[in-house]
């Protein structure tokens, strides 16, 4: 579903990602681990097409379609969706008004209850939300958008343990549920703590450091290695 090949990205002329290659098959959930500043969020932004990230080399394909030259809106229409780490506040724009504009009022009623966000529908988007509320809202937003490829930017940061479980379950549920047209989805989760790995069934993990993927493998093995050795390449690799 997602094929990234030899991708290089810069911001204002400064390279932030080099020679990234990554493939997600339909139905898969991958986790990208790395220290702060390693380029994790830059990779998601480059896939989504957010400024100011600029692809300087390599390619990104979604369902075989090259997206390098597509606008943000065109990428979303192609089926890419993103749960933001720090979304902007939208004063006056209620969750229900947003869902209405998305034509997803019925989905909102159903999924808000599942994410314990029913009381939020009348609130302005991201205004006064706690860290955990923002993360749950961002996943609810993906349910409303119904994308095929989902990008989760640090979904557990700033979330209490109780809600990390709920967020992990929600990520698992949306990833394993076919989209509105019955097609399998795929997801890419980035995390620097790795805590989310305790609550999602990831198929593969990658370590990103210094703008490069330095290792890929079994998620639990990689998480165990990072906990004792930091973001290094396991000797058995």
């Amino acid at each position: 579903m997602l094929e990234i090949s030899e991708l290089c990205v810069d911001v204002a002329g400064k390279p932030v990602l080099s020679d990234i290659s990554l493939t997600l098959q339909p139905g898969e959930l991958h986790v990208l681990l790395g220290p702060n500043g390693s380029g994790k969020s830059s990779l998601l932004a480059a896939i989504m097409g957010l400024p100011p990230y600029r692809v300087t080399g390599g390619s990104i394909r979604v369902d075989g379609v090259p997206v390098n030259d597509l606008s943000l809106r065109e990428r979303a229409a192609l089926g890419i969706g993103m749960a933001f780490q720090r979304p902007p506040s939208l004063d006056g724009v209620t969750v229900s008004a947003f869902a209405g504009a998305m034509g997803a009022g019925a989905t909102l009623a159903r999924e808000a209850a599942a994410l314990d966000l029913s009381a939020f529908v009348a609130r302005d988007m991201n205004v006064g939300f706690s860290g955990g509320e923002i993360k749950r809202w961002e996943i609810l937003k993906l349910f409303l958008q119904d994308p095929r490829l989902m990008l989760f930017d640090e979904p557990e940061s700033g979330v209490d343990l109780e809600h990390v479980i709920a967020i992990g379950q929600a990520i698992g549920r949306i990833t394993r549920t076919p989209d509105g047209q019955g097609r399998p989805r795929a997801g890419l989760v980035i995390t620097h703590t790795g805590l989310i790995l305790n609550h999602v069934e990831a198929d593969r993990a990658h370590i990103l450091k210094g703008g490069r993927i330095i290792h890929s493998g079994d998620p639990r093995a990689i998480f165990a290695h990072i906990q004792t050795h930091g973001y290094t390449v396991p000797e058995t690799a």
């Binding site: 989504m48 957010l50 400024p51 943000l72 809106r73 979303a76 229409a77 969706g81 993103m82 933001f84 979304p87 902007p88 939208l90 947003f98 504009a101 998305m102 937003k141 409303l144 958008q145 994308p147």
Partner: peptide, 15 residues
């Protein structure tokens, strides 16, 4: 705010 526009457009809305 361009950040707000991008946020909504990343959800599939046109500009």
């Amino acid at each position: 705010d361009g950040e707000k526009l991008n946020y909504l457009m990343a959800s599939g809305m046109d500009e």
